[in-house]
Nucleic acid binder design. Structure first.
Lengths: 220, 220, 220, 220
DNA sequence: TATGAATGAGACTTCATTCAT
DNA sequence: CATGAATGAAGTCTCATTCAT
C-alpha cells in the first residue's frame, strides 16, 4: 500500500472537525474497507488515517490499538450482516428456492467486504468467534427453512442440516468464485446460476425432469 | 509470531550441510506451511529460517527476496496441485458423481495449505495468476466431464459450464466450511455430505425420487 | 500510567467552574503530586488534567508548557518548604539536639513529595537552582545553630560547617532509607532513631558515656 | 537529550563488527551510564544506540525491550556493587571507624552511576527488588561489624541495628550532598568529613573529648 | 555453504501542544 | 472558562535485507 499521497491541495486544511461519533464511524468504515482489501497485516494505521485525511495519531483517540479497531470493525460487521433473509413461503417451491438462493448470494455479495474480512482474518481471535457465530446462525436459519418446506409438503423429507450445508456451500462458493466480477457481470452470473441451481436441486440432473422446472430452461 | 530470539546459544549446531537443492526445497516447503498458516505478511523471514534451523541470512542465498520466495512457493504449488482427478466413467452415474465429488473435496483437503495460501494471498501478483489458472483448469475439466456423461446418456443435457461452477462452488464451499475439522471429523462429514449431494444433484429434492438413489438414503 | 481514555463519556460533567486562581493552584498541587510520584517524564499532561477532572487543553490556558508548569511547581515548593525550624535554645542540649533532628527529619517527611520531586528532577534546569538554594540554606541555618550552641557553651567548639553537613546527611539519609514506611512505622522509627543519634552525637560510642544521655537508653 | 549527531566522519563506517558478547556488554555499560544520568524515561533507545555508534534496531537483537535492558543493567549492577568492604579490625577503633566510613563513602562514590540509577528508578519493578536487597545487605553487614567491635570491647554496647542505619544514612547522605563535586573536590571533602564524623561518633560533641580523637583535629 | 552482526525503513503508539468551537 | 478534535514529532520496536567473516 501506501501510495504517495497527493500533495494536499491546501483546501480545507485537512478533514478536520468532525464530532467524535462521526469520526469514529468513519474510521470504522474505512478500516473495514481496507482490512478487507489488503488484510489486517497489509493495512497500516497510516493507510486508514490517510484515507480519512487525518494523522495517524488521531486513531488512538478512538481506539486503543489497531487490534482493538479490528475487533470493533468485526463486531459491527457481525451486527450489521444478515446473510439469509426471510423468504415468502406462499409461492411455488421453485420461486422460494430461487429467491432464497438469490437473496443469499446477493447477501454475501452486498456484504462482500465484511465477508472477505472475516474470511481473511478468521484466525485472529477478534474475528474467529464472530465468524463462527455467523456461520452457525446461517446454518440454523437455512435448516429451519427447509423444515418448514417439508412440513408444507413442498419438498420431500431429507436431512435438512445437510441440505443447509449444501446451500451455504453453494452460496459461499459462488460468491468466492465470482468475487472479481463487477456489478453488471455479477448480476448476469447470478441470474443464470441461481435458476440453474434451483433446477438441479429440485429436479436433479439424472432424468430430463429438470426441464419441468418452470422458472428456467438452461439448455446449452 | 517471533518470540524474542535468545542471542544464539550455539546449541546443537544448526541444521547444517544440506545440498543446495535440498535446502532450497526445504525452505520452499516450510515457507508454504508458514505462509498458509499466518499469511505472507504474518510470516517473517526469520520464522522460516528458524523453522529450517538456519539463520535468516541464508535465505537470501537461495531466493532474491521474500516476495520471490512466495512466487516460487506458489509456482510449485500450482504444479503440484490437482484438484479434479480422473474418474472411472464405466460405472453407474451415481458412483461417478460420488467419486468425483469425494475426490474433489478430498483434493482440496489434501492440498489445504496450498489452497489456503492461494486463498489468503490471491490478491498478491505472485499468487493471482496461478490461482486464476488453477480455477480455470478446474472448471474446464469438470465441464468436459459432464459433456462426456451427457454424451454417454448418463445424465440429461444441460449447461455444463454452469454445472461445473456448481460443483466447484460446492466443493470449495464444503472445504471452506469444514476447514477446522480434524481428519477424523472430516472423513465423517465427507462420507455423509457427498452422497447427500449426489442424491440431490441427480434426483432433486422436489419429489421423493432421491430415495431412488442407490448409494445413500440420508433421511432424517 | 495513562490507561486508554474512553472517548469522553460526558459523565457527571467535568469539575468545571473554578476561579482562575483556584484552578491554577489545583493544577500546581496535582502536578506536584504526580511529578513526585512518577517523575516529570513519567507524568503526562493528560494525567494532570485527568486528576483535575479537566481536559488537557485547559492546562495551556494556565501554563505556557509542561516545563513551565514544572518550574512553577518547583518555585512554589521552594517557597513553601522549610526543613529546619526554629528550635527553643533554652533547654538542655540533649533536648535541643533531639528537637532539631526530629523536626528536620519530620520536615523532610512532611514535604516528602517536594523533596522527592527535587531529588528526582534535580538535573532539570527548572529544579536544579531551587534545590541548590534550598540545600545551601539548610546548611547555613544548621551551622548558625551550632555556632549559637557553642557560644552558649552547650557544646564544645568544632567545625560547624562540617557538623551541619553531618546532620543534614543524617536527616536526608534517614528519610531516604525510610521513605517507604507508612506514617505509623515512620513515627516509631523516628522516635527510636533520633534519640539514638543524639546520644551518639553528643556523647559518642567509645565509652559508656552515652548512657549519661538523659533522653534515651537505647541498649540492645 | 538527542543532541545533533556529528556528521559521521565517514571513517570506519560505524562501530561495526563486534562479537555478540562484546556488543552486549558495551550496550549494558552505556545504558547504565545514560540511565543514571538522564533516568530511564529520559533516555531513548536511540541515545544508547548512538552512544554505541550503532542503529537502534540492533539493541533488540540483544535485549527484548528497553525495560528488559534496564533489568539486566540493574541485575549486573547488583552483582558488581559492594558498598561495605572488609575492614582490618586489628587497629585502634578510630582507624577502624575512619576506614569504614571512608571505604563506604568511597564505595558509594565509585559506584555512583549504579547508586544513582537505583536511586532514580527505585520505583520501577526492575530496580526495586535489587535496591531493597542491596540496602538490606548493607545494614546487616554494618550491624555485624559493630557487634564484632562491641565483642572486642572497642566500643560500648548499643543498638547495633540503629547504629548501622546511622552510618548508612551518613554515607548515603554524604554522597548525595556531594554528588556534584569533581574527583578532587570530593577527595578533599572526604578527607575532611570522615575523620570529623569519626570524632563525633566515637567521642561526641558534648564535652571537649573529641579532641582526644587521635586521627584528626577538625577545628574551624 | 553458512553465520550472525548490522542497517534502515517503516510499523505501531504516545504525547505535548494547538485551535475551532 | 472550558472542551475535545486534531496535529506532528518522537519513541519503541520489527523486519527485510546486506555483508564481513
Amino acid at each position: 500500500m501506501t501510495e504517495a499521497a497527493p500533495p494536499a491541495t491546501s483546501g480545507p486544511r485537512r478533514g478536520r472537525r468532525l464530532t467524535g461519533a462521526q469520526r469514529r464511524q468513519q474510521l470504522l468504515d474505512l478500516a473495514l474497507e481496507l482490512f478487507a482489501e489488503h488484510g489486517f497485516d497489509g493495512t497500516t494505521v497510516r493507510d486508514i488515517a490517510t484515507a480519512a485525511k487525518v494523522t495517524d495519531g488521531l486513531i488512538y483517540r478512538y481506539f486503543e490499538s489497531k487490534e482493538a479497531l479490528l475487533a470493533e470493525v468485526v463486531g459491527q460487521a457481525r451486527e450489521r450482516i444478515q446473510l439469509v433473509r426471510a423468504v415468502n413461503l406462499d409461492q411455488p417451491v421453485e420461486h422460494i428456492m430461487r429467491d432464497l438462493l438469490t437473496a443469499f448470494a446477493q447477501g454475501v455479495r452486498d456484504n462482500l467486504t465484511l465477508v472477505e474480512l472475516l474470511r481473511l482474518e478468521f484466525r485472529r481471535p477478534a474475528a474467529a468467534r464472530p465468524l463462527a457465530n455467523l456461520h452457525e446462525e446461517v446454518l440454523v436459519t437455512l435448516a429451519g427453512l427447509f423444515d418448514s418446506l417439508i412440513e408444507r409438503g413442498a419438498i420431500a423429507p431429507h436431512d435438512t442440516a445437510c441440505a443447509a450445508r449444501l446451500v451455504a456451500a453453494l452460496a459461499y462458493g459462488f460468491a468466492a468464485i465470482h468475487r472479481n466480477l463487477d456489478d453488471d457481470q455479477w448480476a448476469v452470473a447470478l441470474e443464470q446460476f441461481c435458476p440453474f441451481c434451483v433446477g438441479v436441486i429440485l429436479y436433479g440432473t439424472a432424468s430430463g425432469d429438470a426441464s419441468a422446472c418452470p422458472i428456467a430452461a438452461p439448455q446449452t
